[in-house]
C-alpha cells in the first residue's frame, strides 16, 4: 500500500503556484480539499473537520507566507497549529483530593479498555507512592470481576468485590472500606455500556451521586470512528467528565477520535494506553497526536525549525 502523506499531496496541489506573498482563496482551494480528506481518513468527525477547515482557510489566505516556507509548508504549519490548539495543552494528572480517598471512576463503551486501564492506573499511582484500591463494579460481563481480581494479584493491589450485588452499593461500600483500610485512591471499574442505554447510564449517575468521584474518566478506543462524538457527548452530558483516556494507541490507528472528543467535551485527554501490559500507560501529548493524525511526524519537525 502506497501511502502518500498529506505533505506530498499538498506539495502537488501547490506545484503550479509561483508567487509568494499572501495566498488567495483559489490558491488554497485544492489544498483545503486535501486537508479535509486527510482529516476524514484519520477519523476526525466530519462536523469537526468542517469547522477546522473553515478556520484553517481563514488563516491560510490571510497570512503572509514566511520567506523560509513553501506554500505547502505554510498550510501544513497552520493545520498543525490548529490541531494542536484544538487538542489543548498537556494535563496528564489526576486531581488528588485534599481529603483521601481520591475516588476515580472509569466509564465507557464495551471493550474500550476500562478494566485494563483500571489496572494500569492503579499501578501508576502505586509507583507514585499511593495506596490504591480497585473496585469490581461490573456485575454484568461474564468473568469481569475475576478479570480485575487477576490484575489485582499481578499488581499486588487489593480488589474490592461484592459479587453480583448492585453496583451503586458496591461503590459505596468500597469507599467505606478504603477509609477503613487507609487506601488513599479508589478506582471503580464499571461495566461497558452504550451511551444510549438509559437504564445503565442512570446507574452511573447514581454511582456518581452516591460516591461523588473526584475524577470521572471516559475510556475511549483510539480506533473509534465518526461515532466518537455521540459517545463522548452523551457520557459528558450525563456525568460531567473530568478527562479522557485514549487506549490502543500502540496500533496504527490515526486516532482522529481524539480531536472529535476534545472538541465536543472540552475535557483533556490525560493518558494514552500503549499496550496490553500493565505498565503501558503514558501521559498524552497533544502535539504528537496532531502529527499522528496528519500522518507526518518528520515534516512537522522540519517546519518547526523554519
Amino acid at each position: 500500500m502506497v501511502f502518500e502523506s498529506l505533505a506530498d499531496k499538498l506539495q502537488q496541489t501547490f506545484k503550479k503556484l509561483r508567487g509568494r506573498g499572501k495566498l488567495s482563496e483559489s490558491d488554497v482551494a485544492d489544498a483545503l480539499k486535501e486537508v479535509r480528506m486527510a482529516l476524514l481518513e484519520a477519523d476526525v468527525n466530519f462536523k469537526v473537520v468542517k469547522d477546522l477547515v473553515a478556520k484553517i482557510k481563514e488563516r491560510a489566505i490571510g497570512q503572509e507566507v514566511l520567506e523560509s516556507l513553501t506554500p505547502a509548508q505554510h498550510v501544513i504549519k497552520i493545520v498543525n497549529e490548529e490541531l494542536t490548539n484544538l487538542m489543548g495543552g498537556t494535563q496528564s494528572r489526576i486531581a488528588i483530593a485534599s481529603r483521601p480517598p481520591t475516588v476515580i471512576m472509569l466509564v465507557g463503551l464495551q471493550g474500550a479498555g476500562k478494566t485494563t486501564t483500571a489496572g494500569k492506573l492503579a499501578h501508576l499511582l502505586k509507583r507514585q507512592g499511593k495506596r490504591p484500591l480497585m473496585v469490581a463494579a461490573d456485575v454484568y460481563r461474564p468473568a469481569a470481576i475475576k478479570q480485575l481480581e487477576v490484575l489485582g494479584e499481578q499488581l499486588e493491589i487489593p480488589v474490592f468485590t461484592m459479587g453480583q450485588d448492585n453496583p451503586v452499593n458496591i461503590a459505596k461500600k468500597a469507599v467505606d472500606q478504603a477509609l477503613m483500610m487507609a487506601r488513599d485512591i479508589v478506582i471503580i471499574d464499571t461495566a461497558g455500556r452504550l451511551h444510549i442505554n438509559e437504564e445503565l447510564m442512570n446507574e452511573l449517575k447514581s454511582i456518581k451521586q452516591t460516591v461523588k468521584p473526584h475524577e470521572i474518566l471516559l475510556v475511549v478506543d483510539a480506533m473509534t470512528g465518526q461515532d466518537a462524538v455521540n459517545v463522548a457527548e452523551s457520557f459528558n452530558n450525563d456525568l460531567g467528565l473530568d478527562g479522557i483516556i485514549l487506549t490502543k494507541l500502540d496500533g496504527d490507528a490515526r486516532g482522529g477520535a481524539a480531536l472529535s472528543i476534545k472538541a465536543v467535551t472540552g475535557q483533556p485527554i490525560k493518558f494514552a494506553g500503549m499496550g496490553e501490559k500493565l505498565d503501558a500507560l503514558e501521559p498524552f501529548h497533544p502535539d504528537r497526536m496532531a502529527s499522528r493524525i496528519l500522518g507526518m511526524g518528520d515534516v512537522l519537525s522540519l517546519i518547526e525549525k523554519a
Binding site: L109, D221, Q226, V231, R254
Partner: peptide, 11 residues
C-alpha cells in the same frame, strides 16, 4: 470488527 471502529478497520 467493532462497528464503532473507523477507517482503521480496513488495515
Amino acid at each position: 470488527l467493532d462497528a464503532t471502529t473507523g477507517q482503521n478497520a480496513i488495515n
